[in-house]
Write a protein that binds this DNA or RNA. Structure first.
Lengths: 243, 243
DNA sequence: GAGTGGTCTAGACCACGAA
DNA sequence: TCGTGGTCTAGACCACTCA
C-alpha cells in the first residue's frame, strides 16, 4: 500500500484521509451510491486508527458527500454536486460561482449614532456606528442595494478602505482579524421603494428580494447588520440544508 | 459528585453530557461569555472519558451554543437564543414556534405522468408521479399555496391519507420509512399570479415569497419537489448559517 | 511552565442488518 | 452468525496562550 500520509507534516491525518476518500469517491463516479470500505478496513489500509477514519468520515457526512447506514456500511452520495449544507457564501463568491463578474459602488459611508440601530446590534445606544451603503453590480448591471451597519470600534477607519473591489467579509477577517462565526438571516418579498427602484432600474412597487442579516462573532457579539434589496430577475437565494 | 449519568440506559453518554452542559450554560445566564471547565475537568467531574466530553462539545459547537479557543478554553455563547445552524424546520414547526396554529386544506391530489416534472425529480419520463396542492393556513388565515410532487413508487396511496392535520414530512418518515437527508432551496421574490393571489387574499401582481425545494434521500434520490407561494406579510424565511 | 484544546492510538462492547 | 457503524475508554503528544 502506498505511503500517502505525512505523519510529521502540518496537515492533520484525518484531513489527509478525508482528501484521499474524496478523490476515491469522485474516481468511482460510474458506480451508483457505491459502498466505501468499512471503517476498520480503511484504518488498516491507510495505517491509521479507526477514530481517525471516523473523524474524516464525519466531516464528509457534514458536507453531504457520504452517508452511513448502521449495520450496512458507508456510501458515497455520487452522481451529484454536493455543496456543503448550511454554509453561506458571500455576494462576491455567489456571483463568481455563476460566472458573473461582481463589483460594487460605494454610495455612502459615514459614522453615526443611532439608538434604534444600536439596539439591533445589541450595543449601548450612544456607541458610534459605521454605515456603508453600496450598489452591488454583476457584469456592470445593478443587482442589489446593500446597507451595512457595524460598531465603529470593531473596524476603525473602515470607511476609508477600498470597499469596491474587496469583499467586506474579507476585509473584516484579514484587516481587523475578526472571527466571523454565523449569520442569522430573514428573507422576505417586498415592494421596491422609490429610491431603491431607481438604483436597480426597476419600476417602483415591483417585487424585490429583501434580506436582513446579522453576522455574529464567536463570542456572540454582533459584527454587522445588513439589509439588502435584490433584483429578483438577477438574484435568487440558494441554499442546501440538512434535515 | 451526583450520579446523573445512566450508563445502561438507551441514551448515549455524550447526549447526557451535552444536556448537562446545556443546563449549566443556561443556569449561568448572568455571567457573560462564561468559560466552561476544561475538557479534562469535565471528564473527571462526570466520570467519563475526555473523548466523550469532546463529542458532547462538538455537537454544542455545531448548534452555536459554545465555542472553543485553543490554549484558552471553551466558552458559552450566552445571553442569546442559539438555534441550530443550517437546519430546516417545516412549515408546521415554524408556525408552532411563532405561536400560530397551523393547518392545511388539500386543494387537489392526483396522479400524473409529466416529462418536465420527471426531469426535475431525475426519474424516467413515464414514471407515475403524485401531485398534492395545498393551502397552508395559520390561525385559519391563508399563509401559502404549496404544490408538492413525488414519485408515486416512494409513497403509494399517499393521496388517500390525511394530509390536512399531519405534516407531509412526518408522513414520509413514519408511514413510508423514508430517510430524508437534505433540502436544496431556491428563494425568490415574485409577483402573485391571478389564481394564487385569490387563494391568498391579496391583489394580483403584489409580491410573494416563492420557494422551490427539492428534498433528497440519503442515497441521492429525490423524494419530493415543492413549490410554495407565501404571503410576505405572514411569512418570512428565517435561517441561521455557519460561516 | 502550567494549562488548554487539537490530534491520535489500540483496544472494547453494543445494536443492527444481511445472509 | 458475522460484519457494520455507534459508542466509550485510558492513555499520549502537540501547539498554543497566559502569567
Amino acid at each position: 500500500m502506498p505511503q500517502l500520509l505525512h505523519r510529521r507534516g502540518p496537515i492533520p491525518l484525518y484531513t489527509q484521509v478525508k482528501e484521499h476518500l474524496r478523490a476515491r469517491i469522485s474516481g468511482d463516479e460510474a458506480s451508483d451510491a457505491s459502498r466505501l470500505p468499512s471503517e476498520r478496513e480503511l484504518a488498516k489500509e491507510l495505517g491509521v486508527s479507526r477514530v481517525t477514519v471516523r473523524q474524516a468520515l464525519r466531516e464528509l457526512i457534514e458536507e453531504g458527500a457520504v452517508f452511513t447506514a448502521p449495520g450496512r456500511g458507508t456510501f458515497a452520495v455520487s452522481a451529484r454536486l454536493a455543496p456543503a449544507t448550511g454554509r453561506l457564501t458571500s455576494f462576491t463568491q455567489e456571483m463568481i460561482d455563476r460566472g458573473i463578474a461582481p463589483s460594487s459602488r460605494v454610495l455612502a459611508a459615514d459614522e453615526l449614532v443611532d439608538a434604534h440601530l444600536a439596539e439591533i446590534l445589541q450595543v449601548h445606544e450612544d456607541t458610534p456606528l459605521v454605515r456603508i451603503r453600496r450598489l452591488r453590480l454583476g457584469d456592470d448591471e445593478p443587482v442589489a442595494v446593500e446597507t451595512s451597519v457595524l460598531p465603529a470600534e470593531l473596524c476603525p477607519g473602515i470607511a476609508t478602505l477600498d470597499l469596491e473591489t474587496r469583499s467586506l467579509y474579507e476585509t473584516l477577517r484579514t484587516i481587523y482579524r475578526l472571527r466571523l462565526h454565523a449569520s442569522e438571516l430573514v428573507v422576505e418579498s417586498r415592494q421596491a421603494e422609490w429610491g431603491t427602484a431607481g438604483l436597480l432600474h426597476i419600476a417602483p412597487d415591483s417585487p424585490v428580494l429583501f434580506i436582513e442579516r446579522r453576522t455574529l462573532l464567536a463570542d456572540g457579539r454582533i459584527a454587522e447588520f445588513v439589509r439588502s434589496w435584490y433584483r429578483p430577475d438577477r438574484y435568487q437565494f440558494r441554499m442546501r440544508l440538512a434535515l
